[in-house]
Design a protein around this nucleic acid. Structure first.
Length: 448
RNA sequence: GUAGUUGUAGCUCAGUUGGUUAGAGCGCUGGAUUGUGGUUCCAGAGGUCGCCGGUUCAAAUCCGGUCUUCUACCCCA
């Protein structure tokens, strides 16, 4: 008999973990709803054509493809097979893929349902996504994301509110975070100021690593990407500035750069008037990989745990454009549920209430006491108390051990004495104290 | 995809230069205790040493391959 296993990078979730994860979802959901966002869900599978080309070449590699049903070899081009051209063949044997994030499916949803949607459309979505990554710390192949996006509004007030949602959401969970912000237009401005607009992507990827590899590492990386020395000097000077307002001196000839600074100033202006619990910082080195961002970009890092980012997002001016709906701007942020879980576990800040399940277990000795207890159980449940009965009247030790293992706080023992008195013996499993009560008194005690 | 790392009982792990019948703790089952768990004592069950192949009189141990775990790079939540 083979030992069972689950695919690499996936995990089972036991009762405790699911309760805790639901606690995270419930907490965030309350915040999302408070700010006027509505829930949607999309299928786990999308057409492969919907997903490919949206996440860069790396992203395409990390997509899980679903093999066509039936004779999937029928459509394979023999020449491609002979050449060993697996990339072309991929699309001949697979037409569907598992979603890689929630943003692209959302864009697809907006385009398909544009006639029924009242814009600006504010939606939240809590569903798992899949990536064919090598698993390691804080990286899984299946994980939940909680996305909040608004489409159909250019207003920077959305950026402000999403910052608030981050702040309020993490505060509600009890995680101290730094909310890092930047603007893609500022990054474009840097590339233009350095005279290398065509190398903007290579440049941002390099400076994104600043805190990891240092300024010399960044410069080496840019040299490898064939960025010239004068440009590197200019970029280094810009990276050294302290306040984003100083950027304007560098951006005299970069319209986009100036626009980015202006946008950023507007957002910061609003944020100053709001009482935030977490730190919000301007981080010029923040780049982020997804290439559809065009304006504000966000990234959230936990202060007390080293685990990479636990949230990210940004503004994308033309996300729905690839699906045929032009001129609709969107902005959104994502909460990385799996990493948030890991952080909360490491900090040990899950509230005890997340473990709450059964409150009361009935323990019985024989058929007569079982019937009596089963009857009482119905009354208890009608009163809204989570309760169960050990399904067979067996040895008391066994039943008590079960209650203990399940961390059930109260046990109601029913034997001859109790039945005769019309009572149950209620035992507090934490203190060991025991008292005899009628079922009505029991309800009163447990509902107070 | 590259580099390193891990795999032995349900779980966490020992296992010496290759040498008879592979161990411990926890957990599980039964008993001490016919109405009291979380503490104690006794007994028992439970293993294809990841998988395939090789070296050897002899492999958990050495060699090769493969899968897996974790970590770093790449990229990202």
């Amino acid at each position: 008999m083979q030992k069972p296993s689950i695919p690499k990078g996936t995990r089972d979730f036991g009762p405790i973990q699911v309760n805790r994860r639901n606690y995270i979802f419930d907490t965030l959901r309350r915040v999302f709803v408070k700010y006027g966002y509505q829930p949607i869900e999309t299928p786990v599978m999308e057409n492969l054509s919907t997903l490919t080309g949206k996440y860069g070449e790396e992203g395409d590699q990390l997509l899980f493809k679903v093999l066509n049903s039936g004779d999937f070899l029928r459509k394979v081009n023999d020449a491609d097979y002979q050449e060993g051209n697996y990339k072309k063949m991929t699309f001949q044997i697979s037409e569907k893929g598992l979603r890689y994030d929630l943003t692209i499916p959302f864009a697809r949803y907006v385009v398909m349902n544009q006639n029924d949607i009242a814009f600006p459309f504010k939606r939240y979505q809590i569903q798992p996504v899949w990536r064919g990554d090598r698993p390691q710390k804080g990286r899984y192949r299946e994980f939940y994301q909680c996305d909040v996006d608004v489409v159909g509004s250019d207003s920077l007030i959305n950026e402000v509110e999403l910052t608030q949602i981050y702040d309020e959401g993490f505060a509600a969970l009890g995680i101290d975070v730094v909310i890092k912000m930047n603007n893609r237009k500022i990054l474009t401005g840097i590339a233009e100021a350095a005279g290398i607009p065509d190398k903007m992507m290579a440049m941002t990827m390099a400076i994104d690593k600043l805190d990891k590899i240092g300024i010399d590492g960044v410069k080496d990386e840019m040299r490898r990407k064939e960025i010239n020395e004068t440009a590197i000097d200019t970029i280094e000077n810009i990276l050294n500035i302290k306040d984003f307002s100083e950027l304007e001196d560098f951006f005299k000839d970069s319209e986009t750069g100036l626009k980015g600074v202006e946008e950023f100033r507007t957002v910061v202006g609003y944020l100053k008037e709001i009482d935030l619990k977490n730190e919000v910082v301007f981080d010029i080195t923040l780049a982020r990989g997804l290439n559809y961002y065009t304006g504000t970009i966000y990234e959230v890092a936990a202060k007390d745990v080293k685990i990479g980012s636990i949230g990210g997002g940004g503004r994308y001016d033309d996300l729905t454009g690839t699906f045929g709906l032009k001129g609709v701007s969107g902005v959104g942020v994502s909460f990385g549920a799996a990493r948030i879980y890991d952080v909360m576990e490491e900090l040990d800040i899950f509230p005890d209430s997340t473990a709450a399940g059964t409150q009361l277990l009935f323990v019985t000795f024989d058929e007569a006491s079982f019937d009596y207890a089963f009857n009482a159980l119905q009354t208890i449940r009608k009163a809204g108390i989570n309760a169960e009965i050990y399904p067979t009247p067996t040895k008391m030790k066994k039943q008590m051990k079960y209650a203990n293992a399940r961390k059930i706080p109260y046990v109601a023992v029913v034997g001859d004495n109790e039945m005769q008195a019309g009572e149950v013996a209620l035992k507090n499993m934490q203190t060991g104290e025991q008292e005899n009560l009628t079922v009505l008194d029991l309800v009163a005690k447990l509902t107070q």
